[in-house]
Amino acid sequence: MRTFDYVRPATLPEALSALAASPEARALGGGMSLVPALKLRLAAPSALVDLRGIPELRGIRITDDAIVIGATTTHADVAAHPAILDRLPALAALAGGIGDPQVRNCGTIGGVVANNDPSADYPAALLALGASIETSRGSHAADDFFTGMFETALAPGEIVTAIRFPIPKQAAYEKFKSPASRYALVGVFVAVTAGGVRVAVTGAASCVFRAEMIESALGERLAPESLEGLRFSTDGLNADMHADAPFRAHLIGVLARRAVSKLLATGKVN
């Protein structure tokens, strides 16, 4: 690993100036993606700005219609939070299924969102639930945030501070994971929101995306049967050592049906 400067600011303004001091500085959350990348020399920042020393970036707030999760809140904390288990259990279950226990003890929601790994679980939840990404400069709608493979709408030096999830009527997430990496080969998040049914797919392509064909079919009738016979195009889908594009296309339909069945079985209607 190449060396770097390490700073652990106690306030957001200090973190912003540390990041602004060098174009090669990187923000550090739980380090579950960044530290392995440093070891492989896929990343060689001049400085790491550890955001975990900033108290206001951590923690979970519940309002009447939303759950707001601070950027450095760990997956383990989201998975075990009583109010999230009660109001948005699909999100708690998603967080509890990321990686393994040690990854969940360290990994942070802000880190996942800023990294935008094409196989990460959280981006599917953000996109399907119509979440907003709150940052040091303002707010981004999830629909406009995930722009490509490891690419987001974040400007250089912009820091994710929190994720705001509107509480849906119903939601469920299903994934088919790689047994080795435990990343999603494909993951499908289905949400019944105030604005209608929203479905987001992760793992299948270079970036999380909304599946309009599934959304309109479920909009007519919210049942797994509505998706029978749908065929998904393999255009743009990933093909790698884990799965080819036709298998991933097939998984989208299977997982969407499973998610709808789960959503209907839990009967959680807010």
């Binding site: 530290v35 392995p36 080795a180």
Partner: peptide, 27 residues
Amino acid sequence: CDTSQCGACVVHVDGRSVKSCTTLAAA
């Protein structure tokens, strides 16, 4: 493995299990 997968390096930090091969001592 030294690639964050095998768990042989797990220790506790503040009571929680973490992979020491993926934890910066500086933190």
